[in-house]
């Protein structure tokens, strides 16, 4: 096959599109004070924020998998009245400003929230301003990405494999775990990665619901924002660290997720 050449207009616009992403990254790299970088990377505050970010985002992804995959299965397989309304409501955090999401979480799970006051009075559990609160906020914002991806995977899979399993005597739970889940593994994986990436970058809902306490709720994006006012160079370094972590993950997943480009 002959190699395809781009029409001039498409080539120019594509180059502009790529530059739009590349330039800010170059700015970050160029303006980072490398002399201070090594010290900042190993400082206790930075490591604490990084650790918290990773723990919270991975936990949020785990929670999203446990709750989101069954939700996606129900959306894809069970017909019930109000399904599309419910799906729209659970997809809302994707388009809702995260701050609004944070406020909504406060009103539900805050100390005086619908469920929060009961949690507090009955069990002495308080979510706001805790690491658990960070996980709540990140899950709230990131889970819809997983649910939508997995639902699409469930809808596009060949359901006759499940029929084949039934003719072989498999019960519904066995079919779900031994046939359905392995068959939608690529969607599951892509959904989990999207969900994790969204959770890692979460800012608005987290700062609103969980606050900004170093070591407890201050994740990397919060630390970056906080430093920007007092110590811009420090925030550049943290941004670069986030960039590198994201890049490592992307490159690591390239073959499975982005195709071998």
């Amino acid at each position: 096959m002959r190699r395809e050449r781009a029409p001039l207009a498409i080539g120019i616009l594509a180059a502009a599109g790529a530059a739009f992403f590349i330039l800010p990254l170059i700015g970050l790299v160029v303006r980072t004070p490398w002399a201070d970088a090594a010290r900042a990377v190993t400082s206790a505050d930075t490591l604490e924020a990084l650790r918290l970010s990773l723990v919270a985002s991975l936990t949020a992804t785990g929670v999203a998998l446990v709750l989101g995959v069954p939700l996606a299965w129900v959306y894809a397989r069970i017909e019930f009245p109000g399904r599309s309304v419910l799906r729209a409501l659970t997809t809302l955090p994707m388009v809702l400003p995260p701050v609004v999401g944070g406020i909504a979480l406060l009103l539900a799970f805050g100390r005086r929230g619908l469920l929060g006051s009961w949690l507090e009075s009955s069990f002495g559990i308080s979510l706001p301003f805790t690491t658990a609160g960070v996980v709540f906020a990140e899950t709230f914002v990131a889970m819809p990405f997983l649910v939508l991806t997995v639902e699409a995977g469930l809808r596009s899979m060949d359901r006759r494999y499940e029929d084949a399993a039934r003719t072989l005597g498999a019960k519904r739970w066995t079919i779900f775990t031994r046939v359905t889940l392995p068959l939608i593994a690529p969607s599951l994986f892509a959904g989990a990665v999207l969900c994790w990436a969204r959770a890692l970058g979460e800012f608005g809902a987290t700062i609103t619901f969980a606050g900004n306490f170093p070591g407890v709720t201050q994740t990397m994006p919060l630390a970056v924002y906080l430093l920007l006012g007092t110590n811009p160079e420090g925030s550049y370094i943290l941004s670069l660290i986030l960039l590198v972590v994201s890049l490592v993950v992307l490159v690591g997943l390239r073959h499975r997720w982005l195709g071998s480009a």
């Binding site: 084949a164 031994r178 392995p182 068959l183």
Partner: peptide, 27 residues
């Protein structure tokens, strides 16, 4: 279906792609 004593050979076979040949037969 799962309680009927029926063996079904599907047109395009529908072998489970994630399982080995042996595990397909063992399913």
């Amino acid at each position: 279906t799962e309680e009927r004593s029926i063996g079904f050979v599907f047109q395009d076979y529908l072998l489970f792609p994630h399982l080995s040949v042996l595990d397909n037969v063992a399913f």
